[in-house]
Amino acid sequence: MNINTIISDALESSMPYEQYRALVESHVHNDSNTGAEVTEALAEYTKLNHQRMRRHNKKMELTQESLKFLTGFDKQIKLLCITESWCGDAAQTMPMINKVAVAGGMDFRIVLRDENLELMDQFLTNGNRSIAKLIFVDSTTNSPLATWGPRPTVATRLVAAEKEAKGSLSPEFKQELQNWYNKDKGKSTEADLVKIMQAL
């Protein structure tokens, strides 16, 4: 199956951001999580992520410069995000992705990774099924134009440096990364996405 067909099939089964938020909330109430593996730990991450997204939805704001560019953006593009409820990077970035999509007049759609492995395997990061993965899709042909993820460029550098220094990511570093996200307030994600859109 070619990539455009895989993307088309994924888009058909995708959900808008508000539906995804409702899905995550339903898992919170049921002490569960999305994905093939359901565990107490992943259910706890889902609860944390629900709170993060709720907070970021209210507090994150686009810069005036980004708003000016996005409101004038006229290319026919959809944003397709691959994620799961337990993914911390996704919870920290999806609220800003949604704000960029709304301001740019783009349809923002979401699919779950473990239900869309054929799609996921087209967009691996260093051979891994890392999420969140955002695909910029041509609305007419459903061909991929660009990708972003699993985290902002600045955070990617922090993670790479930690792995190089210590070989893996400790729980302490993962907490430091979440603290970085909280201070960043979505600005790095916003800058990355606008830069990609300017190049399209």
Results as ranks from 00 to 15, higher is better:
Trp180Asp: 01
Asp74Ser: 10
Arg109Leu: 15
Val38Phe: 10
Pro95Thr: 01
Glu190Phe: 03
Asn128Leu: 15
His50Trp: 09
Leu48Gly: 11
Ala161Trp: 01
Asp107Val: 09
Gly88Phe: 04
Leu62Gln: 02
Lys166Thr: 14
Thr46Arg: 12
Leu62Arg: 03
Met96Lys: 03
Thr39Cys: 13
Thr5Trp: 08
Ala160Asn: 08
Gln76Asn: 15
Gln198Phe: 02
Thr63Asp: 07
Glu40Ser: 13
Met120Ala: 14
Asn128Pro: 01
Ala10Leu: 03
Gly167Arg: 01
Tyr20Met: 13
Leu48Gln: 05
Cys81Tyr: 00
Val102Phe: 10
Lys163Ser: 10
His50Ala: 15
Gln51His: 13
Lys99Met: 09
Glu190Trp: 02
Gln51Phe: 12
Asn2Leu: 10
Glu164Trp: 02
Asp74Cys: 07
Glu25Trp: 11
Gly72Glu: 15
Asp184Gly: 06
Thr141Leu: 01
Phe123Val: 11
Arg21His: 14
Leu67Glu: 15
Pro144Val: 00
Glu37Leu: 08
Ile131Val: 11
Leu134Cys: 09
Leu169Glu: 03
Glu115Ser: 12
Glu84Tyr: 08
Tyr17Gln: 05
Ile6Gly: 08
Ile110Cys: 00
Arg129Glu: 14
Ala165His: 06
Ile77Pro: 05
Ser32Asn: 07
Asn33Lys: 09
Asn116Ala: 07
Met197Ser: 09
Tyr20Gln: 12
Thr34Gln: 11
Ile196Ser: 03
Val24Met: 14
Thr93Asn: 12
Ala36Asn: 15
Thr83Asp: 01
Arg21Thr: 13
Ile82Phe: 01
Ala36Gly: 09
Phe108Val: 02
Pro152Tyr: 14
Asp138Ile: 01
Val111Arg: 04
Tyr20Thr: 05
Asp114Ala: 09
Asp138Gly: 00
Arg129Trp: 14
Met53Gln: 04
Glu37Tyr: 13
Asp89Glu: 04
Lys75Pro: 04
Asn30Arg: 11
Met15Thr: 03
Ala155Val: 05
Leu158Val: 03
Ala199Asn: 15
Leu193Pro: 00
Gln19Leu: 04
His50Ile: 11
Val102Met: 12
Asn142His: 13
Val38Gly: 10
Lys99Ser: 01
Met94Trp: 03
Leu70Asn: 02
Asn179Tyr: 07
Glu190Asp: 08
Leu134Thr: 14
Ile97Glu: 04
Gly104Trp: 02
Asn98Asp: 07
Leu119Asp: 05
Thr189His: 00
Met96Ile: 05
Ile97Tyr: 15
